[in-house]
Design a protein around this nucleic acid. Structure first.
Lengths: 230, 230
DNA sequence: CTCATGCCGATACACTGTATTTCTCCAGTG
DNA sequence: CACTGGAGAAATACAGTGTATCGGCATGAG
């Protein structure tokens, strides 16, 4: 009996696990944004049928949750510096950098509570930075405030980045000359303060803008740490 | 020739405009969240075919943009108080209240630049509050920082609210006892600071949490206004 | 009255998330 | 070794999506 008489052995299904699934989804999102992530495409990338994924997740939202947690692993620094301020600053900047690597993160940031292991670890790191420097309530408020600023700022940065990319113009040029709508609106005179800001304001790059606002918020936290109950 | 011999006059198509379209979309979103908004359903609510909408918008994203701008009209207060701090505080709180009325706003906040007339008016109001109190760059930074905090904080609040609603539990109970996953994670001892915060922390209501963080950020702004270039 | 034009609705398409049904292979059992 | 459950993967199915295209009809101008 020759080889050709025998049928090929059946293709055993590719072994799967959440790690592989999430990696495929992240890759797709990195390439084409969140909307490029469909269960069919994720499965296809793994040589599996779409329905197989439902053994590992029970809804597409859960896949997104896993993706977010996966990226949070990149955010955690190897070691924490002793200085609370430096620790919080680094965590915020690493979050921003992660969002620049994975722009879709901006769409998900703050959208759901982050309860995955890595997400919890990041929260832990934030809280740990303030350990012993304030009562728990103050620490909680500080962490929430810094986090809120970070996600809000990152979302705006990515939103602007996409807008600029869509028009192919730099932020300044876009506002000043080529954004016909904005120009027309400013010309109405109904937005004097805004017009002044657009025309007279220096255009700072996004990173320093993020850093400056962050420093302000950290200043506020520092002030509260000095007087724990305020 | 009797009435019955004559056919009914053809139903003239319902007159449409963006206002009506946006109102229908907002109503749909208020009832069932953003995902309940489909062009077909919006059109159906207006007794029109889905394709009619493309005369007024050219993409679904644009409909979302219009919805966001519509809500920004609710955010603008009738009159601005003289105090810059009160003005910024009120704007932030009104944004939050709008998001509580229209929870879907949280999904959109910060997602795209707000270039509609009402969105620009809100930005104008924020900038105007600081007019004369700082150079344009400082004012810009201040407005951006406060806005970033607001959107980040609002998003988190709505996210938590939905999570609580999904489990039917209060935030405290959810974290403490019934969130088996969180409880188990905290029990591992890998998140000591977080565990302490969850177990020893007072649970403040969302509004005061928002207000407190906002005050901190405003404190930081106040400090920079004192010394314009810092 | 006729004709052209613009707009509206119907149809079509490619795709989505997910429920359900069908099939195929393997582990146990007699 | 033959057979039979049962598990788990695959195929199919369904209701819905955003949007491109097409066909016809009502209304304006001449």
């Amino acid at each position: 009996m020759t080889v050709w008489d025998r049928p090929e052995p059946p293709n055993r299904p590719v072994p799967l696990d959440r790690e592989r699934i999430v990696a495929a989804a992240v890759a797709l999102a990195d390439e084409g944004g969140l909307e490029a992530v469909s269960l069919r495409k994720v499965a296809a990338r793994l040589n599996a049928g779409p329905m197989r994924l439902y053994g590992y997740i029970s809804t597409k939202q859960e896949l997104f949750d896993l993706m977010v947690d996966e990226v949070h692993a990149e955010i955690l620094p190897e070691e924490q510096p002793g200085d609370w301020r430096e620790a919080l600053r680094i965590l915020a900047h690493r979050t921003r950098q992660a969002a620049l690597r994975h722009e879709w993160l901006a769409d998900l940031l703050g959208g759901r509570p982050t309860l995955g292991p890595n997400g919890l670890a990041v929260t832990e790191a934030r809280l740990a930075a303030l350990d012993g420097l304030a009562d728990v309530d103050t620490a909680m408020r500080a962490v929430e405030t810094v986090s809120a600023y970070s996600t809000g700022s990152i979302r705006r940065e990515i939103a602007n980045l996409r807008a600029e990319r869509a028009t192919g113009l730099s932020k300044r040029d876009w506002q000043r000359a080529s954004g016909p709508h904005v120009t027309r609106m400013l010309a109405t005179g109904r937005f004097p303060a805004l017009a002044k800001a657009v025309y007279d304001g220096a255009d700072v790059d996004a990173e320093t803008s993020f850093a400056t606002g962050l420093d302000w918020v950290l200043d506020a936290v520092a002030a509260k740490l000095a007087r724990p109950s305020a």
